[in-house]
Design a protein around this nucleic acid. Structure first.
Lengths: 155, 155
DNA sequence: ATTTACCTTGACGTGCGCGTTAAGGAGCGC
DNA sequence: GCGCTCCTTAACGCGCACGTCAAGGTAAAT
């Protein structure tokens, strides 16, 4: 067994997030995941935060259809959030801190706007499909009527 | 000028749908668009129906993130719908017609279910972002307070 | 100490969705 | 007929997001 502490090896992260180990290393190469810590032998050690980062990446890919390059920019807001958490007790410059926060907020609001836009488009698409389905039902009902007429007055 | 009738050449379709001519030919190769009619010289002649088919393909790509292979299966329901319209006055077998309709309806309902699922996931994502944004605003407000305290009692 | 499972870094391969020449034919106003 | 634009097929290329070996090192159990 592996000494299950706060840290996870790449295999466990892969299993939990349903991505391959290759993908995790690939995301690291591309700068989507920050290089995790290592054990003496060089094995990667991931944190729970890394796991949720991976889940976030996958969501942005699947639900919003963004490229990894776009997602990279997006997750950098999360980077800033982590930094702020870490620096919380260090007496950093308050103005600098506010600027970082403001930038992270701006990125997040951009993402939020995109999500809202997509939701609206999808809802419109949903309505179109609802009327399509209604039309199909109408046609089927019409077929039933035609059939009954033919049964009542066979030529 | 081109004799603007009911039919469009590939360039016009490309412009109206904002895809390249290459893409239109590619979709035809892949069976996503049925081979359009041709003029004597071999130029493709598209119908308005073809145009909306292209638009549908792009929506399924962009909004739902499906592969062209998946979309191909989906648009075949539209094929059936077109067939039914065309055969409407031909006295086709009523049972056969109902079966076709039922299959097309089933496919459409599958697509509809996927859309609804995606809408729900996106709405959940939207809520997460709303609380994220609220958190950022909270932090910023906290910074303001800290600043005012420092101004009131400078160490 | 050896086995076995898990990990490491390259490096080449792959499927998708087209983009990009290349070489030439068709339509049309003049 | 000339010139221009628009079109045709064929074939190679490309970026993305990984997959798939290959060759070897490490961790943990026995």
């Amino acid at each position: 067994m592996v000494k299950e502490g706060a840290y996870l090896q790449i295999g466990e992260v892969a299993e939990r997030t349903s991505v391959t180990q290759r993908t995790l290393r690939f995301y690291e190469e591309k700068g989507l995941l920050r290089p995790p810590s290592r054990m003496e032998g060089g094995f990667r050690l991931y944190s729970e935060e890394d796991v949720s980062r991976v889940e976030q990446i996958r969501q942005l890919q699947k639900l919003l259809g963004f490229s990894l390059a776009e997602i990279k920019e997006m997750v950098e807001a999360e980077e800033i959030k982590s930094q702020i958490r870490a620096e919380y007790r260090r007496d950093a410059d308050i103005t600098e801190r506010r600027e970082k926060l403001a930038r992270a907020l701006a990125v997040t609001e951009t993402q939020y706007a995109l999500i809202r836009q997509k939701v609206e488009q999808l809802q419109q698409m949903r309505e179109e499909y609802e009327s399509k389905i209604a039309k199909y039902h109408g046609w089927l009902a019409q077929l039933d009527i035609t059939e009954q007429e033919l049964a009542a007055s066979p030529s």
